[in-house]
């Protein structure tokens, strides 16, 4: 940044406009790449946009707070968009009513798998207790997950990161995995994405079909409720990593 660019950068980087625009550009660039690649799952637009923006922040020495000052206008729309999920839900009301029992059974199975696998695998890899607690609600939509994390003694901001990574992960390889397992039923594909990968999975399922999207939205909402009720009970004394006292982390720094 020399000559005239220095003051220009100082001015631009102080306005919300810069990072707001760059977020839109990164996402649209990601979408362009995704289509050019013949919709290769690894080039998921959310993933590319996040990676590009992280690199841009690092390269320009910008902190997250400055970035979020601009990006919060996009972030804000998450609320209204979540409310709007009532539309696909309503559209598929007949399908959902018919599949009531299967929905409850697969929700319970998926919700417990999500919690147990997150905690179990992280422990297997020697994760500290605070990391286990932060990872436990990772399949739930961000605001619920952060609330649960705080309640059970995790780090809410670390939980937010695990939630987003879980969502992106599911969006990237969920379709491929379900194809391999021969899960072709649209309602089952939607349930899987909604339970495991919350809103980001739901957004992906909506791109497959209306009914997959509706089941995903329903699964996301139900799994949020169920996990919020289950985890504080499960994480009570002795639930997470307490059996091996020696492996417990010395406590949050």
């Amino acid at each position: 940044m020399t000559g005239a660019l220095g003051p220009l950068w100082t001015h631009l980087s102080a306005t919300p406009l810069l990072w707001l625009t760059l977020t839109l550009v990164a996402y649209q660039g990601g979408g362009w790449l995704f289509r050019r690649s013949g919709c290769h799952p690894l080039l998921n637009p959310v993933l590319t946009a996040v990676a590009a923006l992280v690199l841009a922040l690092k390269a320009s020495g910008t902190d997250y707070r400055t970035y979020f000052d601009g990006a919060r206008f996009i972030h804000f729309l998450l609320g209204p968009a979540t409310v709007a999920l009532a539309i696909p839900l309503y559209r598929e009301i007949d399908l959902i009513r018919k599949a009531f029992a299967p929905i409850l059974v697969s929700l319970a199975a998926g919700s417990l798998t999500a919690i147990a696998s997150a905690v179990g695998i992280a422990r297997l890899f020697g994760g500290e207790r605070i990391i286990l607690l932060s990872l436990a609600p990772k399949s739930v939509t961000t605001p619920i997950a952060m609330g649960i994390s705080e309640q059970i003694g995790g780090l809410p901001s670390l939980t937010a990161v695990s939630v987003v990574l879980t969502g992106i992960g599911g969006a990237v390889f969920g379709g491929w995995l379900l194809d391999r397992l021969r899960v072709h039923d649209e309602s089952a594909r939607g349930m899987a994405m909604g339970v495991a990968s919350h809103g980001i999975g739901t957004a992906r399922a909506l791109q497959w079909s209306r009914s997959a999207g509706a089941f995903a939205a329903l699964a996301m909402a139900l799994n949020g409720l169920l996990t919020a009720l289950l985890l504080p009970v499960l994480a009570g004394p002795g639930a997470v990593g307490e059996t091996q006292v020696s492996r417990r982390a010395p406590g949050p720094q």
């Binding site: 599949a99 029992a101 299967p102 929905i103 059974v105 697969s106 929700l107 199975a109 998926g110 798998t113 999500a114 696998s117 997150a118 905690v119 695998i121 992280a122 422990r123 297997l124 890899f125 020697g126 994760g127 500290e128 990391i131 990872l135 990772k138 399949s139 695990s162 990574l165 879980t166 992960g169 599911g170 390889f173 969920g174 995995l177 379900l178 397992l181 899960v183 072709h184 039923d185 309602s187 089952a188 594909r189 349930m191 899987a192 994405m193 339970v195 495991a196 990968s197 699964a219």
Partner: peptide, 28 residues
């Protein structure tokens, strides 16, 4: 703790998708 984090996110999410999808399809 990239191993704990990455393992839980990738394997855990894959397991959850597989279990939910298979159970739902079987039940339907």
């Amino acid at each position: 703790s990239w191993a704990a984090f990455g393992g839980a996110v990738v394997v855990g999410t894959a397991l959850t998708i597989a279990v939910t999808g298979l159970v739902m399809q079987l039940a339907v």
